[in-house]
């Protein structure tokens, strides 16, 4: 192990790294050292995001870290499942269109696969595939019987770009992300385009998650939102 620059504890930013070419600060000879790029400039932050360098858990063997651990937070066990269910509910209300800060109008739909499971050590699972399984009676019955959403294939449209991916609940991350790439030539160009699209898709999902948090942690959750979701599950439009 060889720390690259032990005296340098630069500001960590978890978010907000937009794909912006780094400004050329002159040749190596002109600068007279080996510094290729000045990475001290903070990237443009998305709304609602802040540095969390001291709020994230330490590494697996880092016993000396003073950072409070969020890794084993009890909410981590259910937050992803509830988020997926909320996403499904929101995708079926208002024609699946959401107005998101920073991204604008986003269309969202559950695509061609949704998986459920019960809790416990010996879980039962349901895997609905093909067509639009989220609209089927079986899907709602899975929720009625207390199953949680484990994975959903999601379609998303922002501006003229369509994304398709599978969203897992634990951990919540994108799998099988298909992006609307247009560049076919040039390694540099393909990397920039695909990283831009990956960060856009991830940023939208993050923003949706923050909307979910806004509702889930508000005082209106129990009296208003939760009953609405239950009515939707029961097929009772409210």
């Amino acid at each position: 192990m060889r720390p690259l620059d032990p005296d340098d504890g630069g500001g960590n930013m978890l978010f907000g790294g937009s794909v912006v070419p780094t400004e050329d600060t002159g040749s190596r000879e002109e600068r007279g050292d080996l510094v290729d790029q000045d990475m001290s400039a903070e990237p443009a932050a998305d709304p609602g995001r802040r540095p969390i360098a001291n709020a994230v858990p330490s590494g697996p063997d880092d016993e000396n870290s003073e950072a409070p651990s969020t890794r084993h937070h009890p909410a981590a066990a259910f937050l992803g499942k509830e988020f997926l269910l909320w996403l499904w509910w929101r995708s079926e209300s208002g024609y699946g269109n959401l107005e998101l800060p920073h991204y604008g109008s986003v269309d969202l739909w559950i695509d061609d696969r949704i998986q459920f499971r019960t809790g416990g050590d010996d879980p039962q699972t349901s895997d609905l595939k093909g067509g639009a399984p989220a609209t089927s009676a079986e899907a709602k019955m899975a929720l009625v019987s207390g199953k949680t959403v484990e994975t959903a294939s999601v379609g998303m449209r922002v501006k003229d770009r369509e994304f398709y991916f599978s969203l897992r609940s634990d951990p919540v991350e994108l799998a099988g992300l298909k992006v609307p790439g247009e560049v076919n030539d040039g390694v540099d160009e393909r990397i920039f385009e695909r990283m831009f699209l990956l960060e856009e898709a991830t940023g939208i999902v993050d923003t949706l998650f923050f909307l979910f948090c806004e509702e889930r942690l508000s005082a209106d959750w129990n009296p208003k939102t939760l009953p609405s979701i239950r009515s939707w599950i029961a097929g009772d439009p409210r």
Binding site: D8, L174, R194
Partner: peptide
């Protein structure tokens, strides 16, 4: 793409 995100803890400001 299947992607997982990490934060590089105490990543250097100058590299």
């Amino acid at each position: 793409m299947g992607a997982r995100r990490f934060l590089v803890q105490n990543g250097p400001a100058s590299i």
